[in-house]
């Protein structure tokens, strides 16, 4: 699963467009990641402000 640093995230939604399994959603509260996440880290590589990271315990 992906964790979102909400202080860093500027809510641009770019990560949503690269997620291959539609696990990310841009909501009013920012980016949310659901269980479909396959830990591919494509979104982590995309994020222009390094706001996303893979949660270590579920790697």
């Amino acid at each position: 699963m992906i964790t979102v640093n909400r202080d860093k995230c500027a809510r641009c939604g770019g990560c949503v467009s690269v997620c291959p399994v539609s696990a990310l959603t841009l909501t009013e509260h920012g980016i949310e990641c659901d269980k479909k996440c396959i830990n591919c880290s494509t979104c982590v590589k995309f994020c222009p402000v390094h706001a996303l990271s893979l949660k270590k315990d579920e790697k």
Binding site: V16, V18, S22, F46, P48
Partner: peptide
């Protein structure tokens, strides 16, 4: 609905971008 579109995917059209086809902008 912008780069973060989900509408197309919900309706059965895959618009997912490859990492190389999207610029990271700041």
């Amino acid at each position: 609905d912008g780069v973060e579109t989900k509408i197309a995917r919900i309706m059965g059209l895959n618009t997912t971008m490859k990492l190389n086809d999207i610029a990271q902008g700041a």
